[in-house]
Design a protein around this nucleic acid. Structure first.
Lengths: 231, 231
DNA sequence: ACCTGAACACCGTTCAAGT
DNA sequence: ACCTGAACACCGTTCAAGT
């Protein structure tokens, strides 16, 4: 699995640069950007790299690992500095989380895979470190901060994964409309609460994601973990 | 798409009961229970129903819609009554959400698809109605309640989707260990916050999901929506 | 009018056989 | 020792042709 030094071609063989994990991931990112994650397959990648799919398995364990590597590469774009968000840890935290969200929103199919195959690449670790540090400044108990980071990142990831389909899949728009219609078609006598909350139930302006971050931050810092639960 | 009355076989043709959306979904549920969602494919289903895959498209638009229908069928198992949870709306709400979680935890691959293809079946609507009603008893502003329901259900779904892989996919255990190892291997000088929060960062006992519900409930009821954001 | 066989255009992963 | 062609075992979806 560990990529060895690439053999120097002694007579400059044309094209076909030697395979390496790095080169594979870079190519995968290029395909992702131009054609979406659905096209980032072992076979397509092999074709792009002018080899057979079997060759990729020397550098990448399977498709899930490949997608995780692609995600971590993209996480390099997240702005951890939170410049211009002021001195308040809360504003900075929301800024970092928003940057993370925006990155995932651009490639929402990846957000989906991130929910399943937990990322653990260097860029993800940097993100965890930053969020942890900012949240710790709240002064909330250590356990709450540690658990809370996961909730915040999961919320950002899940939201991106949901909206994923909204734009990319043709049928997803239909799913959304199906839910909207189903909610409006509901019988007032059997589903009074839905009827009573109807307009807001569906409206989803931009502010909703940011509100969600604040909901979690407030909840995390003010909800004690029952004694004896955190081992 | 609308299933018409099934033609009564006049001479009792053996086996092969006439196709119908209901029969297709029931069969899909059976395959899900015995072999997992990965086997619930159009081709496999057609084989089980003794026909060609093309025939299914008369009753089901595509694989995503099929999976959504299967999910809604399973949601019939969710205990909306919250018996034994006392009279407190909060306890009842956590009980309902926990029941929903447990159902998804049993079929976590479905939770994954629920994040992407929003369910809108009758059982899902009943769940929304119930959660909405309980959350409204908090007395929180209407908008917060309406938006909050989504956050609660999304959290339950995303958590199940994450744990999905933990048990089912063989490599998922490795992903988890990869993250654990990555966190422990981190350099104390470059990632001090991670090092400081280490044991709790990884520990995930049962109580964590319940704590997450309380975090959201507290956050939702105490975090106002900025004026002018909810349209 | 309704249904479906067969085809199209793909997948991931493995392993025997080459260099 | 390293790499990979070819095979295995699948997919979703469409549509021309049958009944």
């Amino acid at each position: 699995m560990a990529p060895r030094a690439e053999p120097v071609s002694r007579r400059a063989r044309p094209a076909k640069p030697a395979l390496s994990r790095q080169w594979i991931v870079d190519t995968a990112v290029r395909i992702l950007r131009s054609e979406g994650l659905a096209k980032v397959t072992m076979r397509r990648l092999a074709q792009e790299l002018d080899t057979g799919p079997a060759s990729l398995y020397v550098y990448v364990a399977n498709t899930a690992e490949l997608h995780a590597a692609v995600l971590d590469a993209l996480l390099g774009e997240v702005d951890l500095s939170a410049k211009g968000a002021g001195d308040d840890w809360r504003d900075q935290l929301v800024a970092v989380l928003t940057s993370y969200s925006l990155t995932l929103f651009e490639h929402p199919q990846l957000a989906r895979s991130a929910l399943v195959a937990r990322p653990s690449g260097p860029h993800y670790l940097d993100l965890v470190e930053r969020v942890l540090d900012l949240l710790a400044r709240s002064g909330a108990p250590r356990e709450q901060v540690a658990w809370g980071v996961d909730n915040l990142l999961q919320y950002a990831t899940a939201t991106a994964a949901e909206h994923a389909t909204q734009r990319h899949t043709p049928t997803a728009q239909d799913d959304w409309h199906a839910l909207t219609r189903a909610l409006y078609d509901v019988d007032e006598t059997t589903h009074p609460a839905i009827t009573a909350h109807l307009p807001e139930l569906i409206s989803g302006p931009e502010g909703r994601v940011a509100w969600g971050f604040h909901v979690l931050i407030n909840g995390i810092t003010h909800t004690p973990i029952p004694r004896g639960t955190a081992r």
